[in-house]
Simulated assay, not measured.
Amino acid sequence: MVHPTAIIHPGARLGEQVRIGPFAVIGEHVSLGDRTIVGPHAVIEGRTQIGCDNHIFQFASVGAIPQDLKFRGEETYLRIGDGNIIREFVTIHLGTESGGGYTLIGDGNLFMAYCHVAHDCQVGNRVIMANGSTLAGHVEVQDHAILGGLSAIHQFARVGAHVMVSGGAMVNQDIPPYTIAQGDRARTVGLNLVGLKRRGFTEETISAIKLAYRLVFRSGLRLEEALARVVTEVGEIPEVVSFVEFIRKSQRGIAR
Rank of each mutant, 00 (worst) to 15 (best):
P4H: 11
I7G: 03
H9F: 08
H9W: 12
G11K: 12
R13T: 09
G15N: 07
I20S: 08
I20T: 09
P22H: 10
F23M: 11
V25P: 05
G27T: 12
H29R: 13
S31Q: 13
T36A: 14
T36K: 14
I37W: 11
G39R: 01
H41L: 04
H41I: 02
H41N: 10
G46S: 04
G46A: 03
R47T: 15
Q49G: 10
C52E: 15
N54C: 05
N54M: 00
H55Q: 06
I56N: 04
I56G: 04
Q58S: 15
S61D: 06
V62W: 00
G63T: 12
A64L: 15
I65M: 13
Q67F: 05
L69H: 14
L69D: 11
K70M: 09
R72F: 04
G73H: 06
E74T: 13
E75P: 12
Y77T: 06
Y77D: 04
R79G: 09
I80S: 01
D82L: 02
I92A: 00
G95W: 00
T96Q: 08
E97Q: 15
T103K: 02
L104H: 12
L104C: 13
I105Q: 06
D107I: 02
N109G: 08
N109V: 07
L110K: 01
F111V: 00
F111K: 00
A113N: 11
Y114R: 14
H116R: 08
H116M: 03
A118W: 11
Q122G: 02
N125P: 08
R126I: 11
M129K: 00
A130V: 15
N131R: 05
N131T: 13
S133H: 00
S133F: 01
S133P: 08
Q142F: 03
D143Q: 04
D143W: 00
A145V: 07
A152W: 05
I153M: 10
H154A: 13
H154E: 14
R158K: 11
R158P: 02
G160E: 08
G160Q: 03
M164E: 05
V165H: 03
A169N: 11
A169I: 15
N172A: 14
D174Q: 03
D174A: 02
I175Q: 01
I175Y: 07
I180G: 10
Q182N: 13
G183T: 07
R185N: 09
R185E: 06
A186C: 07
A186M: 02
V189Q: 06
G190S: 09
L191S: 04
L193N: 09
V194Q: 12
L196T: 03
R199A: 10
R199V: 11
G200A: 10
F201D: 03
F201V: 01
T202D: 12
E204A: 14
E204R: 13
I206G: 12
A208R: 02
K210R: 14
K210V: 13
L211P: 01
A212H: 02
A212I: 05
R214D: 10
F217Q: 07
R222T: 05
L223Y: 07
E225A: 15
L227C: 02
L227M: 02
A228R: 14
T232A: 14
V234F: 03
G235C: 02
P238L: 13
V240A: 05
V241L: 04
S242C: 06
F243I: 05
V244L: 08
E245C: 10
R252Y: 09
